[in-house]
Amino acid sequence: MMEGEGILHETDSSLGGKGLRYAAILREVSKSFKNMKALRNLTLKVPQGKVFGLIGPNGAGKTTTLRILATLVRHDSGYVEVLGMELPKMRVEVRKRIAYLPEDAGLYGRLTGWENLLYYAMIYAGKRRAEEVAMKGAEISGLSEEDLNRKAHEYSKGMSRRVAIARALMLEADLTILDEPTSGLDVVSSYSIRETIKDYVKRTGKAVIFTSHNLLEVEEVCDEVALIHQGRILDSGSASSLKSNYRARNLEEVFIKALGLAEA
């Protein structure tokens, strides 16, 4: 079978990507950096209209996977498709339809929160529609007008993260990629961000891929989860089905048991 042949069966290119079952598909994807293998034949399907969680320990390959989906890193082998478009061939088109928030993504400190939103709105929506899009961002951020008019270097970490997430979500991209959006935040800020993401998916029906070390958080936010370890997917499914399959009380136990099986 030719590379990508099966993918056409799973997608529906005649719908121009709108009727896709999967927002992203990775099949047998490998990626190495010098002597380090980051991904080893990784296969993954990110469903449309859902929050998809990618969980795993540090160095498991989560960020590399997200960076491949975000068109920033080229895979060495395998097949990658985002919104029905093959990567890296169609990376320019893909960039127009995704939004990406890297781990610890910062804001432009000398710009106000509002200007940070407006900058990305201009990039994606053009000068004419920028204000309208940025207004959405302002709403998603939940920050007051006064706070949005302050320079970003004056913000707390929580406020910065809220603006950064709003900057990604206001675009209403077909696939939003969030790498550990709540890492290092306090309970209240984390809760608020989780609610924002859930509301967003419910309201727009767009796909979100999300990573976190907090498995309880993933269980609460994500409709589907994939467990990643040493560059491979150990298992995937809904949190409830995974718990049931592994006879576990929570995702932490699922992960430990899946890891044990993999190493056995």
């Binding site: 975000a70 320019v92 960039r95 990406y100 993504a105 910062g106 432009y108 400190g109 990305y120 990039i123």
Partner: peptide, 14 residues
């Protein structure tokens, strides 16, 4: 270093 570049590179900016 301020971690603003990575997000920018994933945008459609040529």
């Amino acid at each position: 270093e301020r971690k603003t570049f990575e997000a920018l590179l994933a945008t459609p900016l040529p």
